[in-house]
Simulated assay, not measured.
Amino acid sequence: MSEPAARLRRGARGGPALVAVAVLAAAILAGVSIGETPIPPSVVFQTLANRLFEAGYALDAIDAGIVWNYRLTRAIVAACCGAGLAISGVVLQSLLRNALADPYILGISAGASTGAVAVTIAGLGAGMLSLSLGAFAGALLAFAMVVALARAAGAGPGPGASGQIVLAGIAGSQLFNALTSFVIAKSANSDQARGIMFWLMGNLSGVRWHDVWLAVPVAILGVAVCIWHARALDAFTFGTESAASLGVPVRRVQAVLIATAALMTAVMVSMVGSIGFVGLVVPHAARFLVGVRHVRLVPASALMGAVFLIGCDVLSRTLIHGQVLPIGVITALAGAPVFALIMIRARRPQ
C-alpha cells in the first residue's frame, strides 16, 4: 500500500473518533451553559482556562463557581452515567439474547440501590464497605437471583427464555425495591428518608469532583472491556452454543462482561441513584444507526448514552422554573413509550 493510501486509511479510522469527541465536548458544553441562569460558552472556556492554566481572566465569582463546582461536574458524571448504563444494556441484551434486557428492568439497578442504602443507612459492613462496593455487591446479588429464578421457572436456550428472564427481572426489581424501602423505614430518620427517596429517583445535584474521579475511569474501563470483547458479543447474539463453537471461552467471557456491567451500574447508581430506561432505549437507537456489529455498537451506544443523559439533566433543571426534577423522571418519560414500542414490535410476526 502506498504512503498516501495508508494515510487516508488512518484518517478514515480516526475520523469517527474525532467526531465522537467533538460531539461529546459539545454536549458537555451545552450542559454547562444551559440552565436557569444561562452562562455564555466564552465564560465557560475562560473559567476552565483560569482553573487549569491560571489564565487570569476577570470573571464573576458566582458564574465561575457555578461552572466549575456545579454544572461541569454534573455534565461529566451524567455523560459517564449515560455511557455506562447504555453499555450495560448492550452487554445484557447480547448475553441474554433479549431485546428488553437492561440494568433497570432486570433488577440490577434496584439491587445496587439496596446495597448502597444498606451501607449508608443500616451500616452494613461496620464501615468496612464503601458505598460503591456495597452497590456492586447488591447488583451482583440481584442479577444472580434473577438468573436463578428464571432457570427455576424453566428458562432455557429456547424462545421462551426471553419472557421468563423479563418476568424474573421484574420480580427481582420489586423485591429489592421493597428491601430498600424497608431499610429506609427502619433505619433512616425523616431527613435521611426524604433525601434518599429523592436520590433513588435519580439526582445529580450532589455530585462533585471526587465523583468525577471515580465515574470517568469506570466508564472508560467499561468501554474498553466491551470493545475488547466485541467479537465475543457478536457471537453471543447467536447463542452460547454458537459462541462456544467459534472458540469463545463462554463462562469466562460471561463472567467478565456481567461483572463489568454490574460494576458500571453499581458505581453510577451509588452516585446518582437508580435511573431507568437508558440501557434499554439507547442500544436500540444505536443499532438503528450503526448496525449490530459490537465493534461499532459499543462506542456508539456509549456516546449516545452520554449525550442523552446530559440532555435529560438539562431538561430536569429547566423544565419547571425554580425546581429541579429527578433525572429519572425525564428518562422514564422518554423511555417508557420506547419500551412499549419495542414490546409491540416483538409481538408482531417477522
Rank of each mutant, 00 (worst) to 15 (best):
A215S: 08
G239F: 03
S173C: 07
T240W: 05
G160F: 05
G247H: 06
I184F: 11
Q174K: 09
S242V: 04
P249E: 11
A188E: 09
S245E: 02
L221P: 00
D234M: 02
I165N: 10
W199G: 12
S205K: 14
G239Q: 07
A219C: 11
A224E: 00
V218A: 13
A215I: 04
F182G: 10
D191L: 15
S187E: 05
A215Y: 06
L179S: 09
G247N: 04
G206L: 12
I170W: 03
A235P: 05
C226G: 00
V183G: 02
G195D: 15
L167F: 14
A244N: 06
L214Q: 09
S242L: 02
V166Y: 15
V218K: 15
G239M: 03
I184H: 09
S245Q: 02
T240H: 07
A161T: 10
S162E: 15
A168Q: 11
I227D: 01
Q174M: 14
S187P: 00
A178Y: 13
G222F: 03
W209E: 09
D191R: 15
A171E: 07
S190I: 08
F238G: 09
S190Y: 03
V223A: 08
F236P: 03
S187F: 04
L246G: 01
T240P: 04
D191A: 14
S242Y: 04
N203P: 09
V223I: 10
I165S: 13
H210V: 10
M197N: 13
M197I: 14
N177M: 12
G195A: 15
N177P: 04
A235L: 03
W209L: 09
A185R: 06
M201A: 03
N177E: 08
L167S: 15
P159G: 06
P249A: 11
I220L: 14
L167W: 13
V218P: 09
Q174S: 13
S245P: 00
Q192T: 05
I165C: 11
N177R: 09
S173Q: 11
A244Y: 05
V166L: 15
A178G: 13
V166N: 15
M201T: 00
A188F: 08
G206K: 12
I227K: 04
W209D: 13
A161K: 10
L246R: 04
C226S: 03
S242N: 12
K186W: 03
A193K: 11
V212L: 08
L233T: 00
F182L: 14
P217F: 01
N189M: 06
G169V: 07
H210P: 04
R194T: 11
A178N: 11
V207L: 00
A230M: 07
G160E: 07
W213E: 03
H229M: 02
H229N: 08
V212W: 15
F198H: 15
G163E: 11
V183C: 01
V207T: 00
D191C: 13
T237M: 13
